[in-house]
Design a protein around this nucleic acid. Sequence first.
DNA 1: TATTGTTATACTCTATAACTATA
DNA 2: TATAGTTATAGAGTATAACAATA
Lengths: 157, 157
Amino acid sequence: MARRQASLQRAQDDDAPVGDLEGLLGYNLKRAYVILRNDFRDALGEDGFAPRVFSALSLIVQYPDITQSELARVLGIERSGLVAIVDDLEARRLVQRKPVPGDRRVQALAPTAAGIAAYDTARAAVQAHEAARLSNFTKAEQETLMQLLRKIRAVED
Amino acid sequence: MARRQASLQRAQDDDAPVGDLEGLLGYNLKRAYVILRNDFRDALGEDGFAPRVFSALSLIVQYPDITQSELARVLGIERSGLVAIVDDLEARRLVQRKPVPGDRRVQALAPTAAGIAAYDTARAAVQAHEAARLSNFTKAEQETLMQLLRKIRAVED
DNA sequence: TATTGTTATACTCTATAACTATA
DNA sequence: TATAGTTATAGAGTATAACAATA
C-alpha cells in the first residue's frame, strides 16, 4: 500500500481513476463496458433496440426456429426474462412465435422479413460505432482484445 | 450474412453464443463483465461491498479528504448516486464525512482505521478471485488485456 | 416428475430534476 | 449565478418463485 496519500492530479486530468482500481480486471471491464453500451445506444437511437433485444434478434435471425429456452440459455439469462424481450420483438412485428408440431409446450421463434431487415440495419450501425470507438486500435489489437475477452468466458464455471 | 440458418450445435455445447454476436466488442465485453461481477460478489460474500462501494472506498483510502464531487467525477457516476454509497460506508463506520475549513459546502471523505483494514481485506479477496479467473492466462496476456481495456477509455469523448 | 412458457414480484443500479446552503 | 451535497423519483435490467399446460 505504498501509493496511499498520493496526489489525485492524474485522476483530475481526465476521468482516468488511479491506484489499485487500475490494476483490477473487473474495474477495467466495467468502465469499458459502459462506454460500449453508451455507444450502442447512440448507434440505435432513441427508441432503438435494448442490447438484450438486439442480441435476441441476432440469434433468432441467424438460427430461426430457436426456442425461448434455448435462447435464454445461449444468452445466459433467465427464461422469465426472455418473455418481455420476445414480446417487444413481436409487438414490432420483427419476430413471430410459432407452435412446434410434436411438442405443444414449445414456441419456435422466427424472424419476419422486416425483422431480418431491421437486424441488418441495426447490426451495421453497431459495427460502425464500434469501428469508430476502436479507431486508435490496430487490427491486431482489436483481434487480440476480442480473443482475450472470449478466453475469459472459456473458463466459466 | 452467410452464416444464417446454420446449426446451433456449437452454442449448445457450452453457453458460448455464436455468429455475429461473437464479432461484436460490446457483446464480448458484457459477457466478460458479468462473469467478473459475479466473481466479485463471490469474493466479498453475502453482505459484502457492492462494486461501486468498493471502488469508492478504494479511492477514499488512497486519496483521503477527496470530496464527493471529485469522487463522483473520477468514478464516472452522478453526484446524487454517491450519497447512498457514502451513507453505506459511513453506516459501517468505514468512512467519515468531515467539514472542510474555508468552504462549508464541501464534505471531505476520510477512511477510519476500520475502513482501511476492511479495504485491504476486500482488495486481497477480489485480487485472489481475479487471479483464479485468469489462471489460464499468461502474465503477458493479462497485461495485454488490461492495457487494451484502458486504451478504450483513453479515447472516451 | 420434469419442462416450456408465463406472471408477479422485488431488488439493484443509475439518471434526472429540483431543492438547500453556501460561495 | 454557480457549486456541493441532498432528496425524490422513475426507468432499466434482472433474478426468484410460483403457476398452467404439456410431456
